[in-house]
């Protein structure tokens, strides 16, 4: 009796499912109930993932402001970290990543293999990740900027959290990171201590300058902080093409990256003007720094800062608006 019931249910399920269900929010035969399909109409919804650093937010807010106020879209800005955002292309939770830092492996997987995402061109920003120290440290110890001498100064960087080694302060766990491999492969007597956020990095950097506290930390450009705090980059072994191919064996510095935009395949196909705008969006590091500075230090919300920039730079953004 029970077995027959189960068999019946199974048959029913199979019949209803036809070809089974995929994860992108619909049985293969059924259209998805909600999602980016309706983004084709001007009143659609665009989901721009928010990655946890202010430069990204600056770009996202400017694009969101224009989508909302110039094109009449609804914009959602879900808080989804870098790698999960790529998965969001597949599940339909994300339409746009507005500032992508490299991620060749994810590009291969999601663009080439799964074909759920496409590239949407450069943001115009040049991005570099690196290890930084406050300038006064470099002034006092000129040879500290060479990675070979880091072990010599490891004691300077000790903290209560670094377990007897030098501390390398890291940011959000989701950031692009070769730190573990670098420390291992360059045999550095350092320990990664995760501050957990961009804010933790900034605060430490500011304290390091103001109170002359030694600090070695992970940071990146473009960033408004460089205009306020004097930082010096530590030179790791020079980047050569392909030296970072195997993430476990990396022993070289980060490359300078062309930051680019990635959108879901569905959004590229049906996004209409919104997709056009995202594709056209391109600005400079200075533009981004201005907006992020306003957001962090000017006490403005993302929307206010975006509005301020947009009002000040009509010629720049008008070129992005699709005709």
């Amino acid at each position: 009796m029970k077995i027959r019931l189960f068999a019946g249910l199974l048959a029913l399920g199979l019949a209803a499912g036809c070809g089974g269900a995929t994860v992108d929010g619909g049985a293969t035969t059924a259209a998805s109930p909600e999602g980016s399909a309706d983004a084709a109409t001007p009143a659609g919804t665009v989901k721009i993932a928010i990655n946890p650093w202010v430069g990204y937010e600056a770009s996202a807010n400017v694009v969101a402001y224009l989508l909302k106020n110039e094109l009449g879209y609804t914009v959602e800005l879900p808080e989804i970290k870098e790698q999960l955002a790529w998965e969001g292309f597949e599940t339909g939770d994300v339409d746009v990543i507005i500032e992508n830092w490299g991620h060749p492996d994810l590009k291969k997987q999601y663009i080439e293999e799964k074909k759920v995402a496409v590239e949407a061109g450069s943001t115009g920003n040049k991005g570099v990740i690196g290890w930084y120290i406050p300038k006064w440290m470099a002034d006092e110890n000129p040879d500290i900027t060479d990675w070979k001498n880091l072990n010599k100064y490891a004691d300077l960087f000790k903290t209560s959290e670094s377990g007897g080694k030098g501390q390398l302060l890291f940011g959000d766990p989701s950031y692009v990171s070769n730190e573990a491999a670098l420390i291992k492969n360059l045999k550095l007597d350092f320990k990664i201590v995760t501050g957990g956020s961009e804010a933790a990095l900034i605060k430490s950097a500011q304290q390091a300058q103001a109170q002359k506290k030694p600090l070695l930390f992970y940071f990146w450009d473009p960033h408004w902080l460089f205009s306020q705090t004097e930082l010096v980059r530590v030179n790791l072994p020079e980047y050569t093409e392909g030296c970072d191919a195997d993430p476990k064996k990396v022993a070289c510095d980060y490359p300078e990256m062309d930051l680019d935009k990635i959108v879901s395949k569905k959004f590229a196909d049906t996004g209409g003007k919104a997709y056009e705008l995202v594709k056209n969006f391109q600005w400079t590091n200075e533009d981004q720094n201005k907006v992020s500075d306003d957001m962090t230090n000017g006490g403005m919300s993302g929307e206010e800062a975006a509005k301020a920039w947009i009002e000040a730079n009509p010629d720049k953004w008008q070129a992005w608006i699709p005709k």
């Binding site: 399920g13 499912g17 089974g20 269900a21 995929t22 994860v23 929010g25 619909g26």
Partner: peptide, 27 residues
Amino acid sequence: IDDHRNDNPLFLYFLNYIRLFVDALYT
């Protein structure tokens, strides 16, 4: 699993349906 989420029977005929059902409920 990521590569076979959409072609493995366990996912295609079972787990994905649960996901779909729950998604519909939430939506």
